[in-house]
Structures are given as C-alpha cells and as structure tokens.
Design a protein around this nucleic acid. Structure first.
Lengths: 339, 339
DNA sequence: TGGATCATTGTAAGCGCTTGCATTTGGTTG
DNA sequence: CAACCAAATGCAAGCGCTTACAATGATCCA
C-alpha cells in the first residue's frame, strides 16, 4: 500500500500552500470560492483524508468527546448514548464510549483512558464518584456534564432528573392502588447516587403514609434479571409476603416477574410489580410493567448541546431537570383481598 | 490550566533524553532497570500521560480498532462488543464503536469516519456490503475481520457461524414438534446476508419435508418488537393461521408473543413461537422463548485475537465457524389439535 | 592488551497539520 | 494616480512523539 496522501500532496496538486488547503477544509469562508474549488477537486482526486494525529497535535483538539456509562447491556444507556452521539455528530464531533460496569475504580480508569485519547469533553453518569476524578478533570481543564442525576445544588453541569421524587411518585401510585405491604428491590447503592435517591423516594412515600418497611423488604441487587428474580424469590418466600414489589429498574422488574411466575403466582393478582426506566423490556413482559418513563433521548440531546458549548470554551454551569412520568401498565393492580 | 507535561518535561526531570523516556514507556526491556525507575518516578511526579496525537503522528499507529455494528440496542451486539473490547483492552488496544442502524450507506460512512480516526483495524458485521468499502479498506491497507457471518469460501477473515444451518436446525425442531403450518418473520434481507441465510435455512428445512410456504407467511420486518408484533398480527389474522411462527431474532419473537397475547391467544397452546440469538429477553418473556444460542462472547474474543494478529502485520485469512445450539423453551410446543 | 561485541543512551529528523504573522493581491478612495 | 485597506494567500515554526543512527562505555575473547 502506498502512503496516504497528505495535505502537502493536495496543496501541490491544487497549486496552493498547505495553509490554504488547511483553511479551505476548516474555515471555508476564509478562502476564495474559486481557490476552494481547486482544493476540493484535488482532495477528491487524491482521496485525501486529514490525518487525525497530525490534526490533534497541531490544534490540540480532537473533536471528540467521551462518555463513561455503567453498561451497554441496559438499553436505557444504549439509547441515551445513541441520542448523544447523533447530536454530537451533527456538530462533527465523535463520541467515544467506555463502560465501567458500575465499578467506580473502573470508571476512574476509563476516564483516564479517555483523557489519554485527548477527548475535548466528557459525559458521565451520576454524580457520586471519588473527588480525585473531579480534581483530575478540573486540572486538565476538560469540561464535562453529568447525566441521569440532578440536584438543585449540584456543583457541576448536570442533565438528569430527580430520581428521588420519581421513585416517590411511583411508590405513591402503588399505595394509592391499595397496597400496604410493599417491598423494594433496589440497585446497588454504593457509589450510585441514583439508586440511593430512588430508595430515598421510596422510603419517603412510605413514611408519608406511615407504612412500615421491614428491613428484609429492602433488598439491594445488581441490575440483572437473575439478581432480580433471586431477590424476588426471597421476598415471595416471606409470610405474609409483600403485595407489591417495586424495582429499581425494569431489568430487575422483569426478573421479579419471572420469579412470580416460577412460584406459580401471577401478577398483578397475587403480587404487583413495578420497574423504572420504561425500556422496551417493560412492554415485552406479560403483563406489561408499570414503570417510570425516563426521557433518555432528550437527556442525550441536551447533554450534547451543553457539552458542545462547554467545548467551545463557554464557562457555564447549567442544571437541567427533566420530568419523569409514571407509566401505568397491568403489572400494577389492587392487592389481593386479605386472607 | 497550565499546559500538560510532555515527554520532554519527563526527560528533563529524570535526567535522560526523550528517546529514553519513550523507550521506557514502549519497550521497557530496552532500558536499564535503574533508568526506567527514574523515568517512572518522573512520570508519576508530573502526572504525565502520553499525547495521543503526537504518538499517532510519529508512529503512524493508534492502538485503536473500530467496529461498526447495526445497533447497540440489541443486546446481542452490545454483549459481543463488550467481549471484543475486553479482549482488545488486554492488549492495550482501544475499541471505537459506530452504528449503522442496518443502513449500508451509513455503514460506509462510519467506516470512513473510523479510518479518518486512524484505526489500525476494523470489525464489521456480516459480509454483504458494497465492494467499494472493501476496496477502500484494501487500498488503505487496514486489516479487518467480519463477524456474525461465515462461509467456507469467504474471501476475508471471518468469525461467525452458519446462519443458514442454524435456522434450518431450529426449523427442523419445529417440524419435529408436529407443526405443518409454519410462518416466518425474518429480518430485512437487503444488504443483510445473515437475514438472507436464515430465510434460506428456513426454506430448506420446509422443502426437505415438502411443506408449502404461502407467500404471505414469510414477512420481512425491521428487528424491532413493534414490527414483530405487527407482522405477527397479520399472520394470526390468516385463516387457517400458522401453528408456529419462527422469528429472525429474539426481539421479533418477543413482539410476536405480545401479538399473540393481545389477540387473546396463548403460546404455545395456540401458536408456537421461536426466536434467534438467545439474549436475556428470550428468558424474560413468558413462556420462555425457544431460540438459537449464538456464542456472542466467544465470537467477540476470537475476533479480537484475529484482529490483534492482523494489526501486527500477519497476513492471514482465517475463517472461524462457531457452533450454534437450539435452546428449547416452553414457547415451542406441539400444534393445537386440528379442528 | 587490542579489537570486536553488546547493551544502553543520546541526537536529531521528521510524522501531517494548524496558525500567527508577513506578504501579495485587487479594489477603493481622495 | 498614489495611497490605502481588506481580503486572500503564503511562509514557517512548531505541536509531542518515535526511531534510525550514532555515540558511549562495558565486557569479552584471542
């Protein structure tokens, strides 16, 4: 394979200097239309593509932003990233994705790796992380936005929603349906402010109605179906068992539903179940899963907007809160008549 | 923010030349242990990270490989990529992911974008694509491996499985269960050799048993739940309706199951359903979906191995075929007694 | 002991691109 | 028509790193 054409080859063919070629590529308005035409022709003729490294080296920008998410295997993140990526692509910015698998150490590593690749900005999920990471980011002057979380007093840019009150809302709905024995399968709260906030909302709603929460009825489980099913089994084995099981996300919810069926019970007749996220899965299970709709696409788009502005050097601190909505589906019904 | 430390800063602090620093970072064995120690100390002290662009420019390698997949929203790809990424990471190689949404034009664009970012290698899904893309790849001398597809005579490296015979196997299983009126909801075959091959296997199995396939009983649908449900509705409206609906993947299968329930029918009593991929979704739906297990993790790992060797300059043409396996679950049962 | 060999380190030339500044061009103005 | 100005273009200095080659000193053997 012969070496790739360079800016210089293009310049020679077009009969201009490399500076002009560079400019017609990056700031088309600054060169005469006729000249630009010649350059474009040369580019096309040679099949020229700018060399990424050269560009990064000279301009100290990469037109790249990174994102570290917990996992691609939950569609909610996959979709939000899709939206983020599309919005960034419109501005000619590439998205680099890394996953942490909910492990703060891995997250920090991935942040470092992305910085090493010269990302101009970063999107991170949630607010809870080692201050070292925030320090690093500020020291390097790399702007970032937090997604999925939101606090009035968050010291950084964030695009999220109020996890606490969203969970409180769905819990209230369950209580309104008549349930009194309510359990929750939450995500692992360590280093996960969203999971923590959701538990908080759950507790708040119970407390507001003066409902008791037996300790064993709040289970933390990794966000997988199997873990959800296992946790639900434990809850269902209790006597009396809860009449409603609220889950920290839809995947746990699907697991819980499976456990219910496996035990020969059915939802919502014997036990009601709810999820969180409103991913496709919540409509794939039968009965459809009552859940909280999270506007993942809009979060992605908004985060992209912010990130782009930050990358341009604007020093802004914006906190965007999206509304969530409870999606009622048949998995939530009235509790079974007392025996 | 002060400028980031450079190789030169490290060299100065360690009292060596930049060449030595570069070497102790890249080929530690070529540097005396004592010297290396000083360098490492200096690196740590300054918090030095190599500049990606500089490195790429000087070495003309990026330690990056790209992958273009149809979508992140199907867990099968998400998981395979996860495995690919992990295996690459062990060799210090970063994975860049792009999605095409099953659109060949977009795929070509993404390939170009990744090349523009200087990827050392590429993983692509399937074999069917414009020869222009293959030309471009060969012209640039960028090695690549195809995933998900496999042919004995495939002219490129591939790590996949025989989609045709996998689908033939599951179809045979359905026939063995007693079904005679069998329909299929396939993926869109345009530019998708896997979808095409699966239909082929389906037809072959029917033909081997001399079963007829009414034209309307082979529907192509995008790989989404809604499309699957909609296609299934059409099939279920037929009279007599098929007793088994085989789907091109699990997402379509989940959609078909939903349509069945919505129509007041149930699987497998009234209609049997099968999927393809064996993602978690197939165990989330009730009844569990009979499907074909695709060894996505192993495909990812194997592709990574190959890719790494190719990036090292080995000129190999390997075709790796994995076995698939039919996972029988309750969604497949005997056909309802003839009326 | 002289010369060859080897391990280790240094020197310096780029890699392809951007960009501040200088220069040229072409048009405008008094 | 000279003087001036803005727009367009060219010049050339790096950006941070790798690496061929050279230099050095130590080691070894005849």
């Amino acid at each position: 394979m012969r070496p790739l054409p360079t800016l210089e080859d293009v310049a020679r063919l077009a009969g201009v200097s490399t500076a002009t070629v560079s400019r017609s590529l990056n700031e088309p308005d600054r060169v005469r239309a006729e000249t630009r035409g010649r350059v474009e022709q040369a580019v096309a003729h040679l099949g020229y593509t700018p060399h990424f490294g050269g560009r990064a080296l000279a301009s100290n920008r990469t037109n790249t932003v990174g994102a570290v998410i917990p996992t691609m295997e939950n569609a909610i993140f996959a979709r939000a990233l899709q939206a983020l990526q599309e919005a960034l692509a419109e501005a000619g910015v590439t998205l680099l994705v890394a996953t942490s698998n909910y492990d703060p150490v891995r997250e920090a590593e991935q942040v470092r790796a992305l910085l090493g690749r010269g990302v101009d900005g970063l999107a991170l999920i949630g607010e809870a992380r080692d201050s070292e990471v925030y320090d690093l980011l500020e020291r390097r002057g790399v702007p970032f936005v937090l997604m999925w979380s939101w606090r009035e007093t968050c010291p950084w840019c964030c695009v999220g929603f109020d996890n606490r009150s969203a969970m409180e809302a769905i819990t209230r709905r369950v209580i309104e349906a008549g349930h009194r024995r309510i359990a929750m399968i939450a995500g692992i709260t360590e280093c996960n402010d969203r999971a923590t906030a959701r538990i908080c909302g759950f507790r708040d709603a119970l407390a507001a109605t003066e409902l008791a929460l037996p300790e064993a009825w709040l289970i933390e489980a990794p966000y997988t179906m199997d873990a959800g099913a296992e946790a639900a089994e434990r809850l269902l084995a209790d006597d009396p068992r809860p009449t409603a099981i609220l889950c920290g996300n839809d995947v746990l919810g699907a697991g819980a539903m499976r456990a219910i069926v496996n035990r020969g019970l059915s939802a919502p007749q014997d036990v009601s179940v709810t999820g969180f996220d409103d991913i496709e899965l919540s409509r794939a299970v039968m009965p459809g899963l009552t859940t909280v709709h999270v506007p993942h696409r809009r979060m992605g788009q908004r985060a992209a907007q912010l990130l782009l502005r930050l990358c341009l050097g604007e020093a802004l601190l914006e906190r965007v809160a999206f509304q969530t909505e409870v999606m009622e589906r048949p998995s939530l019904g009235p509790p079974p008549a007392e025996r």
